[in-house]
Design a protein around this nucleic acid. Structure first.
Length: 271
DNA sequence: CTTTAGGCCTGACGGC
DNA sequence: TGCCGTCAGGCCTAAA
């Protein structure tokens, strides 16, 4: 579900909420997410104060004093902070953290495409190896992007969703960024001019920043750490708006399937 | 190397 | 009302 803006919104909230909180207990209520969580994770994390909550691509890094955890929300994951330990749990509440101050953090994921793992103390976690630059950091610039697109022959929409090229862009924001940049999603990536690549870079950054400022987008499952929905779904220009009028030209927006994913665009404005 | 297809899961929705 | 097929924001692996 969640793309970079949703994970970043959650990260910032968890960082404020959990920093210095001491983990009292971790209960794995169900162990079969995308892959099994380490059985010894609870005992490893127990007693550690949270140093910070960081993010890489769509992954959360919950860092304790001595060990750190890596989490992904998959399509349907959420993490909600409770002031007190809930009395009952839903069938998709898979991991429950309790803290010494009485609060709780519940990791819920109906589809179980998410994951939770320990980070290796040395070296890089396998799932983080090979991920491309963060789109809102300095490694992602016009020179990098135009070079990275050069040899790619696939459609630009699927190419910018490739996490090795740039981290954190998923299906929604790929469509939105291409609309902002006025580039057709079906354009061969390598055919973009330097100017177009620069426009796309700026569009990706602009849409991600705007979405973070709105607390992310909630289509179905995603919620913030307190259970509130995001707001950016109300700002979509094209996503899930097939048949509606383009905000620029008024033509009906189109829908197509690219790389097996729903894609929305304006045939008139995007070239 | 890049690209594509299939698979992992549950739940919501539309059509009959 | 219920059954069934399809689809959903992600990502991994295998194969072409």
């Amino acid at each position: 579900m969640p793309e970079l803006p949703e994970v970043e919104t959650l990260r910032a909230e968890l960082d404020v909420a959990l920093r210095h909180a001491v983990i009292d207990e971790v209960v794995l209520r169900r162990n079969d997410l995308r892959f099994p969580m380490p059985k010894h994770l609870p005992q490893v994390m127990r007693g550690q104060a949270v140093r910070c909550v960081a993010r890489r691509a769509k992954y959360l890094l919950i860092e304790g004093e001595r060990e750190a955890m890596l989490a992904h929300l998959g399509m349907s994951g959420k993490m909600v902070v409770h002031e007190q330990m809930p009395k009952t749990f839903g069938k998709h509440d898979h991991v429950v953290f309790s803290f010494r101050d009485g609060r709780a953090l519940v990791f819920t994921d109906p589809r179980r495409f998410g994951m939770l793992d320990l980070l290796p103390k040395q070296g890089v976690h396998k799932l983080l190896a090979g991920i491309g630059p963060e789109p809102l950091e300095s490694g992602f610039d016009a020179v990098y992007l135009s070079k990275a697109l050069e040899k790619r022959r696939g459609p630009i929409k699927t190419v910018i969703m490739d996490q090795r090229l740039v981290a954190g862009v998923g299906n929604i924001y790929a469509s939105e960024a291409l609309f902002l940049a006025r580039i057709s999603p079906s354009r061969e990536a390598g055919s973009l001019t330097k100017k177009e690549a620069t426009a796309l870079l700026e569009a990706i950054q602009a849409v991600l920043r705007a979405a973070i400022a709105s607390g992310g987008s909630t289509l179905r499952d995603y919620v913030r750490s307190g259970g509130e929905k995001g707001w950016f779904q109300h700002e979509f220009k094209v996503y899930d708006r097939e048949g509606e009028a383009c905000v620029h030209c008024g033509e009906a927006l189109r829908h197509a399937v690219m790389g097996g994913r729903a894609t929305y665009y304006c045939e008139t404005c995007q070239r």
